[in-house]
């Protein structure tokens, strides 16, 4: 494709852009549009949540009381910390400090993985084991000291609560896992010295994505854990 690459002087400028400024602005706008798309995507789930919560307030309260606020809270802290390390990463990228950047990205990755691990071992797995997984597997075990009470819940909508809990937090976790993959690539690229003060857009954009994912959690946490 070499004959198409008309910017021999600037390998970072793709052939179809005239100036680097135009390229930066285009990528930035594209990133924001992608996030707008994500908002609509999660929006559908939030709508379903709003409808079913208003239909089944008792189920929401009963379900929410079995969620572990402490674990959820600690996880929230991990996630907010990861947002902080990511923001620092962007700062170091902009100032061209490659070593610190790599460190911050690694910290973000570690915090993210901690979140997902905690989520699995302290939240998803015990629920599934106690029969608190909606659908065909649904059979809350009355003998379970924590979730057993759910077996005695009378009325509708309890499965719906857990369904939305699993789907919404699961969709959130999936976004994080996709983020891990991207982070790995960014870390390798950082170690290869691909980013410096003049070229850090991918870091910036990933930062936007990561903050978006965090904000989603900031909504999810009270919506599921703090229903009274």
């Amino acid at each position: 494709m070499s004959s198409l690459d008309s910017h021999a002087d600037n390998p970072y400028l793709a052939h179809h852009f005239e100036t680097e400024e135009q390229q930066t602005e285009s990528c930035t706008l594209g990133m924001w549009l992608f996030l707008a798309q994500e908002v609509m995507f999660f929006g559908g789930l939030f709508l379903a949540y709003a409808i079913y919560r208003s239909l089944y307030p008792e189920a929401w309260s009963a379900g929410s009381h079995t969620l572990d606020v402490v674990v959820g809270g600690i996880n929230t802290v991990f996630l907010l910390l990861s947002s902080f390390t990511m923001a620092m990463g962007v700062y170091y990228a902009q100032t061209g400090k490659q070593k610190q950047l790599a460190l911050m990205l690694l910290a973000t990755l570690a915090l993210g993985i901690t979140f997902v691990t905690v989520k699995w071992f302290f939240e998803y797995a015990p629920k599934i084991e106690a029969g608190v997984f909606p659908g065909k597997l649904w059979a809350p075990n009355p003998a379970n000291h924590h979730y057993g009470q759910l077996a005695f819940f009378e009325g509708q909508g309890l499965q719906m609560f857990f369904l939305l809990y699993f789907v919404m937090t699961g969709m959130h976790a999936l976004h994080m896992i996709i983020g891990f993959g991207i982070l790995l690539v960014l870390i390798v690229m950082t170690m290869q010295g691909k980013f410096h003060a003049q070229r850090y857009l991918p870091i910036l954009f990933f930062g936007l994505y990561w903050h978006f994912v965090d904000i989603v959690w900031v909504f999810l946490f009270p919506m599921f854990y703090l229903v009274s």
């Binding site: 995507f41 079913y52 909606p134 659908g135 499965q159 719906m160 369904l163 789907v167």
Partner: peptide, 28 residues
């Protein structure tokens, strides 16, 4: 994206056998 998440929920309903949109299971 709204359509995407909607059919995603239908897909979940099919494989998990839950009632997101099924009145028999509390869905609307």
């Amino acid at each position: 994206p709204v359509l995407a998440i909607t059919v995603f929920l239908v897909g979940i309903e099919r494989i998990w056998g839950v009632g997101i949109f099924d009145p028999a299971l509390g869905g609307d």
